[in-house]
């Protein structure tokens, strides 16, 4: 009973703080969404370019693309953010926190997305490409009508997983002072001495943002398993 009362008292604090917190956290949420959306979009573009480079017949292009993937997968996103935000200042390149976060997280996500695209394209059996050639399709038409539609289906669940990762990584932007959920939460916690409350609220916000994506991944994965099973029998 005592524990329940304590818990009720803990959550009662939110009632009193709602008015002052909701406006600030709402603005912070928008910044988090901007960073996530921008970084993911940039990541998709980079990912597509790098994936095509990886599969190209040019030795140089495929090796450069491989190097890009290995580097972005081996270096923490936070280190990339610091390199872009703090590291370029002495060279005269000064970027605001939000664009710097979008660029840094986009560069980092690009490596993962490239591997997802590559795996999707390679997963379509090469017999399909040959069949396309046999019925007289051009290389472009084969990509457009045979490979891309199937590759997209395969790539969609891992892409959504990457989107969840980008959303979570967007919290790193607070460490280069982009005014996102985590930075606001940190500010409020140091002025109002309610660190647990505001940080739990921040966690809950990320949870609510990621939950629908996470469900979508699960539904798509289940559907794909069924689809593959149907094809096998």
């Amino acid at each position: 009973m005592k524990a329940l009362e304590n818990l009720a008292a803990f959550f009662a604090v939110y009632g009193g703080k709602w008015e002052s917190w909701s406006g600030e956290m709402w603005r912070a949420l928008i910044v988090t969404l901007e960073i996530t959306g921008g970084a993911f979009a940039l990541g998709l573009v980079i990912g597509l370019i790098v994936a095509v480079g990886r599969l190209s017949t040019s030795r140089l292009l495929s090796n450069l693309s491989l190097a890009y993937v290995e580097i972005t997968r081996g270096v923490p996103a936070l280190a990339i953010l610091f390199l872009i935000y703090f590291g370029l200042v002495p060279l005269g390149v000064i970027i605001d926190a939000v664009p710097a976060a979008i660029i840094g997280l986009g560069l980092s996500a690009g490596g993962y997305i490239a591997e997802i695209f590559r795996a999707g394209i390679e997963a379509t059996h090469k017999g399909q490409r040959e069949a396309g050639l046999a019925v007289g399709m051009t290389g472009g038409a084969i990509y457009r009508y045979v490979i891309i539609p199937q590759a997209t289906r395969i790539a969609l669940p891992p892409l959504l997983n990457t989107l969840i990762s980008v959303l979570k990584d967007s919290s790193l932007a607070s460490l280069i002072s982009a005014p996102d959920i985590m930075l606001r939460a940190k500010d409020i916690s140091s002025t109002e001495f309610l660190p647990l409350h505001i940080l739990v609220l921040a966690g809950f916000m990320y949870f609510l943002l990621a939950l629908p994506l996470s469900f979508a991944v699960r539904i798509l994965e289940a559907r794909m398993r069924r689809g593959l099973g149907a094809r096998l029998t």
């Binding site: 969840i164 979570k168 790193l172 607070s174 916690s189 949870f207 943002l209």
Partner: peptide, 21 residues
Amino acid sequence: EIFRDIPPLTSLFIIYFGLTY
């Protein structure tokens, strides 16, 4: 589900700053 959806930075801050409460 909770720990898949919450950034590591958030859980770290909850443990380091939040639990002082």
